[in-house]
């Protein structure tokens, strides 16, 4: 949003790098911590990627170990599951991203429309709380709700005279359950960002709309949603970068080692965890990480390129 403004003010690019530094020194200074952070934690460790190409030996270290080329990537191909795993991971993430954002925007708008102040605060807090529950506890919670012999849901069903339901032996229901659990956990947190940007909408525009006779729905449709568009696009672009990175905590704690459910719930992370736990191989794990990062990189570049074609102002770079 701010970006467009900067562009307008931007002088002709006749300024040299140092002149720019001088002119924007305050901005530069304010950016320094972030720049340093990324230098230290994201760029400095980059050479470590090399570990994905060696047979890592503790004593020789990353750069002293034997170079083995693409051997560490082999096991992913050899497993014959790479496609299934990648597609599971991507589909789950798509569901999380799309439903998550739609629901978050929806909730943010609802919150914005609430007039009763205490109710607004309470419901916001209630929505936020699940975000702070550890995934381990979420796993236990889900198990206690859904397990066949003693689960809460089955207790209800039997007392209603219905037949028991066994989700832990039925892979097909898990995509739905997992998405619900995810939404329950994350919506409160995600909606805060949208709520904040709704708050940032110029009150005058809304006033003007009201004067022009717009009703509540029209206000949302023609003022709020369009104003949220840049935020939505940016958040989507960010999320797409991680589309091949699965939510390990969620899957590992809820599905655990129930191999009956793997056909629909196994993602790259959980598979790699199981397979590399056996020989404790840093190199294979890094190889997988690199694979995910490369795909993520391609995704971001492509999506950004598409966004730029459609609406140049909304693109990240």
């Amino acid at each position: 949003m701010g970006k467009t403004k900067v562009k307008e003010v931007k002088p002709k690019s006749s300024l040299t790098f140092f002149q720019k530094v001088k002119r924007y020194k305050t901005l530069m200074l304010m950016c320094t911590p972030a720049i340093l952070f990324f230098l230290a934690f994201s760029y400095a460790p980059l050479p470590g990627i090399y570990v994905a190409f060696v047979k890592y030996n503790y004593r020789d270290g990353i750069f002293g170990s034997k170079f083995v080329g693409l051997k560490n990537f082999e096991f992913l191909w050899d497993s014959g599951k790479l496609l299934d795993l990648t597609s599971n991971t991507i589909l789950y993430n798509l569901a999380f991203i799309i439903l998550g954002n739609v629901l978050a925007v929806f909730m943010a708008i609802l919150l914005n429309e609430l007039r009763c102040k205490w109710f607004k605060k309470v419901s916001q807090t209630m929505m936020f709380l699940p975000y702070f529950i550890s995934q381990v506890l979420v796993g236990i919670l889900v198990y206690n709700l859904l397990n066949y012999d003693y689960g809460f849901v089955n207790g209800m069903l039997t007392s209603l005279g219905r037949e028991k339901w066994g989700p832990y032996s039925d892979p097909n229901v898990w995509p739905v359950i997992l998405v619900i659990v995810y939404l329950w956990q994350q919506t409160g947190y995600n909606s805060v960002v949208y709520f904040a940007s709704i708050m940032g909408i110029d009150a005058e525009i809304i006033e003007a709309a009201k004067v022009d006779g717009a009703n509540g729905f029209q206000k949302i449709r023609y003022i709020i949603l369009p104003s949220l568009k840049p935020t939505i696009v940016i958040l989507l672009l960010f999320a797409l970068g991680g589309i091949v990175k699965g939510n390990f905590g969620l899957f590992y704690n809820i599905i655990g080692s129930n191999s009956l459910l793997y056909s629909t719930t196994d993602i790259i992370e959980t598979f790699v965890y199981r397979a590399t736990m056996v020989d404790f191989n840093f190199s294979t794990a890094s190889a997988v990480g690199l694979y995910q990062s490369v795909i993520g990189f391609i995704m971001v570049i492509t999506c950004n390129w598409i966004v730029k074609k459609i609406e140049p102002d909304y693109s990240l770079f």
Partner: peptide, 27 residues
Amino acid sequence: DVDNIQSYINNVNETHNNYMKQISYGL
């Protein structure tokens, strides 16, 4: 010396694990 067959062993192990869970518990 498993350097050359480690990826097979990992995958075999993983397969064995997944199926044995189902078979050993009759599920």
